[in-house]
Amino acid sequence: MLKSQASPDSAVTGATGPDALLFREGMSRVAEAVHVVTTDGAAGRAGFTATAVTPVTDSPASLLVCVNTASRSAQALLANRVFCVNTLSAADLALADIFSGRTGIQGQERFLAGAWETLETGSPALATSLVSFDCRISDARVVATHHVIIGEIVCIRLGEPKPALIYRGRHYQEL
């Protein structure tokens, strides 16, 4: 039986599943690549920092991205129906903070940092990213507090191989 670190004698499993705090603590111990997910189109340009990105299948090539339903960027991404997943290098740590909202910079101002180009969908692709996956939404649904979005990849731009930015233990690290 799983026990909560904060309360070692209390059970955290049961009919409702594990305790949310314990789940977040457990996930903080998993190293994840850091991405900036961007979109552009009729609903405007937007972007956010994400670690909840994973491949779905290689034929057709697709990615799954999760974004909080309360996010301002989520609405633009869903309306534009396109997005680009930009995997960050360790040198792009400042961009991770900017697009996560930690710096207070909002909206279009976020794109003043970094060098941006476009690929097939018109979504911003970070010139310094390790890789950029340009996608069209093939499926989207709400699961609890998040939009779960699957994008079919229409273009991939490989960047220079260099140290990656990861998130683990609630802070960024170089790998």
Rank of each mutant, 00 (worst) to 15 (best):
F83S: 00
P55D: 02
A70G: 14
L112P: 01
L112R: 13
W116T: 00
R136E: 13
S28C: 09
L165I: 03
A94N: 11
A79M: 04
S7I: 06
A140H: 11
L119S: 10
R157V: 10
S10R: 14
L93Q: 15
Q108H: 10
L22V: 08
L22D: 15
R81K: 15
Y167C: 07
C84G: 09
T49N: 10
T118D: 01
C84H: 04
P163H: 08
C66G: 02
R136G: 12
D40S: 11
I137E: 00
L175I: 10
A96M: 10
A115F: 06
L112K: 12
T39F: 03
R29P: 10
A76Q: 05
G122W: 01
T38H: 03
S100R: 04
T118K: 02
R45G: 06
K3R: 11
V12H: 06
A125K: 01
L158W: 13
I105W: 02
D9M: 04
A74Q: 03
H147W: 14
R168F: 09
A6S: 14
W116H: 02
V12I: 15
R102M: 12
A52H: 03
R141S: 10
C84L: 07
P161V: 10
E109G: 06
K162I: 02
C155P: 00
D92G: 08
A50L: 07
L78Q: 05
R110Q: 08
V65N: 01
A94H: 13
T39I: 04
L64H: 03
P55I: 08
P163D: 12
H171I: 06
A70L: 09
Y167H: 14
S132T: 09
V85Q: 01
A96E: 04
V131Q: 08
K162A: 15
V30T: 11
V131Y: 09
D97K: 10
A91Q: 15
D19M: 03
G44V: 03
V85M: 04
P18Y: 08
V36N: 01
L64F: 07
C66L: 12
R141Y: 10
L78W: 11
C155Y: 04
L93E: 15
S10L: 12
A15H: 07
C155H: 11
F133P: 01
E120A: 15
L175D: 12
P60K: 09
G107T: 04
